[in-house]
Simulated assay, not measured.
Amino acid sequence: MLKAYKYRMYPTKEQEEKFFQHFGCVRVIYNWALEQKIKTYEQDGKSISRFSLNKMIPELYEDKEWLKDVNSQSLRGATLNLDNAFTRFFREKKGFPKFKSKKNPVQSFSVPQYYKVDFDANKVRLPKIGWVNTKLHRRYTGIEKTATVSKTPTGKFYISILVDDEQELPVKSIFNEKVTVGIDVGIKDFAVLSNGEKIKNPKHLKNSIKRLAVLQRRLSRKQKGSKNKVKARLAVSELHEKIRNQRHDFQHKVSSKLISENQAVALETLNVSGMLKNHCLAQSIADASWSSFVTKLEYKAEWYGKTILRIGQFEPSTKICSVCGFHNGKLTLAVREWKCPECETNHDRDINAAINIKKFALDKQNLIGI
């Protein structure tokens, strides 16, 4: 089972320069490889493999001798990242790979092997860089795979180490109606459960939006290229980082709770990218970050042998009475509570949707009534 462990690094000034040198060289190789792939396809109608590109990298040393100053395996890691980008483009339709810019606030390079981790000394040794002070707050056991060094927009450095703990994923637990929960995500409440529980939406971005607007106005007024502009940009980045950390902390706690308390979780498939085109709700939807929350549920379910059930995007979970099955086609987004004209049951819109999501998911598994 693969797990990633992320640690904060505290490099010296000289080591920071080495980091930036690696960021720049890896970016050059990535852009060069992307250009080669595009040219090869336009001329021959074929794609050039990363192995062929790796064989061509030494030829670049003649004109770009500074490439010799960085870890050669990090350079070859750039071609692997490019291959992965093309795989996402063809399989998941994630968008054609773009050329990387040095102005991008997030920079990274990979270290496939030959790095060392010393937990007792709180240091990590990187090829061509040396021992770097690192806050190794968690120990791990297993086979170390690729490590990735990254820089955030706030100027912080992190290393993420992929570890194979040599353990198999646990067998999926048997589930039934009693140990399954349906979840309806929303904006007013972050998540509503089929058992009637509502999880309040913390709205981290909305709570900080006024302060963010002030900092962005200050940034826009600074002179281009000045030190004050750099300071103002850093202040904006730090607030964005705080919001992101708050959001991830909240989602980790909620997802861990749901996975630990249930054997199966039923979810509705949402077209989030399409919903973000609604300019009236886009900011609130982005603030809730449902896709990130679902991702956390999915990999934690794999870790602990739980099951994620999905229902279709167009299932009428909101408009159907969960008691008698009456379809209320006139229900609008503004209506939060409604009464079924058939069985006269009073429904909370979101709780009713969560119950239906659970029913639809279990019905596909032929587990209704078990």
Score class of each variant (00 low, 15 high):
Ser273Gln: 15
Met1Glu: 02
Val294Tyr: 12
Asn81Tyr: 06
Thr87Val: 05
Lys358Asp: 01
Val236Ile: 02
Lys306Met: 09
His137Pro: 00
Arg244Gly: 09
Met1Ser: 03
Phe90Leu: 04
Leu309Trp: 07
Ile48Asn: 02
Ile183Val: 11
Ala353Ser: 02
Glu342Asp: 09
Leu309Glu: 00
Pro316Met: 05
Ser72Asn: 07
Cys340Asp: 02
Lys229Glu: 15
Phe109Tyr: 08
Arg125Cys: 15
Thr134Ser: 08
Phe19Glu: 09
Arg218Ala: 08
His240Val: 13
Asp44Leu: 13
Asn228Ser: 08
Thr318Pro: 07
Pro170Ser: 11
Ala264Lys: 00
Ile355Ala: 01
Ser226Tyr: 08
Ser292Met: 09
Asn195Tyr: 09
Thr318His: 00
Arg91Asp: 15
Gly369Tyr: 12
Glu166His: 05
Lys13Gln: 12
Asn262Lys: 05
Lys93Glu: 09
Ser101Val: 15
Arg76Lys: 15
Thr141Asn: 10
Glu59Pro: 00
Arg310Val: 04
Glu59Ala: 14
Val111Gly: 01
Gln283Leu: 10
Phe293Cys: 01
His327Ala: 02
Phe119Met: 04
Gln15Thr: 05
Val236Thr: 05
Glu268Leu: 01
Gly142Tyr: 07
Pro170Trp: 11
Thr269Ser: 14
His327Met: 03
Cys280Glu: 07
Ile187Pro: 00
Glu65Ser: 11
Ala353Cys: 00
Val272His: 05
Ser292Leu: 13
Asn81Trp: 07
Lys46Trp: 11
Tyr61Thr: 07
Ser101Trp: 14
Leu362His: 13
Glu238Pro: 14
Phe293Ser: 08
Glu337Gln: 13
Ile159Glu: 06
Val26Leu: 01
Lys64Thr: 10
Glu17His: 07
Thr180Gln: 12
Gly196Glu: 14
Phe360Cys: 03
Asn352Cys: 04
Phe119Ala: 03
Lys203Leu: 14
Ile48Pro: 03
Ser72Ile: 13
Asn366Cys: 12
